[in-house]
């Protein structure tokens, strides 16, 4: 955190990382905005199926998504930054969900949470008639979080991953696997 702030400050002072020579420096404003955006991602309440319960659990007491500024679940797509597609999308729901995506203001991101949102998950078999085999068939997806359902920690990791995608730096050191 401190490291990131120091980097940003050095950026603001025209230090390492900023482009020299230009009076108008949009890049810095963009960086500032991105920093703000990454630290207060507002997800859209889009609980579709089983994964929604794990999304709720991530927002509740034990996992406390608020530590990462992403606990403000908005019911309205116009107030949301990130759509967490938590659950199975079928063709009847595909229309409404696309409308929701279109209603979200730029910049916007999508997390495909769980196997169903990634690929249709367990509901794909020859002759299946209902399920959309991955929400990336409907709109672009930024982060895929696998699991059936993924654990709340996985959602937090997905949020961190998305933050990294937005700012280019990672907020939290990656956990090393033995």
């Amino acid at each position: 955190m401190a490291e990131q702030q120091a980097k940003w400050l050095s950026c603001a002072e025209g230090g390492a990382g900023s482009e020299p020579g230009s009076l108008v420096r949009f890049a810095r404003l963009e960086q500032l905005l991105d920093w703000g955006r990454a630290n207060s991602l507002w997800p859209l309440t889009l609980g579709l199926a089983c994964c929604a319960i794990e999304m709720m659990a991530a927002g509740a007491a034990r996992f406390d998504l608020a530590r990462f500024g992403a606990e403000v679940f908005r019911p309205s797509p116009r107030q949301a930054d990130v759509m967490i597609v938590a659950g199975t999308v079928n063709w009847k729901m595909a229309g409404p969900i696309k409308t929701l995506y279109d209603q979200m203001l730029e910049p916007k991101w999508v997390i495909a949470f769980g196997n169903c949102a990634i690929s249709g998950g367990p509901f794909v078999f020859p002759g299946q008639y209902a399920v959309v085999e991955g929400v990336d068939k409907l709109f672009p997806v930024d982060v895929h979080v696998p699991g059936c359902p993924p654990r709340p920690e996985a959602l937090i990791e997905g949020i961190l991953e998305l933050e990294q995608k937005i700012t280019g730096t990672r907020r939290w050191p990656r956990v090393k696997t033995a």
């Binding site: 199926a49 659950g87 008639y129």
Partner: peptide
């Protein structure tokens, strides 16, 4: 209803 129809009954006949 039907926005979360996931074909469980069809899957039962498929596996």
């Amino acid at each position: 209803i039907g926005y979360a129809h996931r074909m469980h009954e069809k899957m039962g006949e498929n596996r």
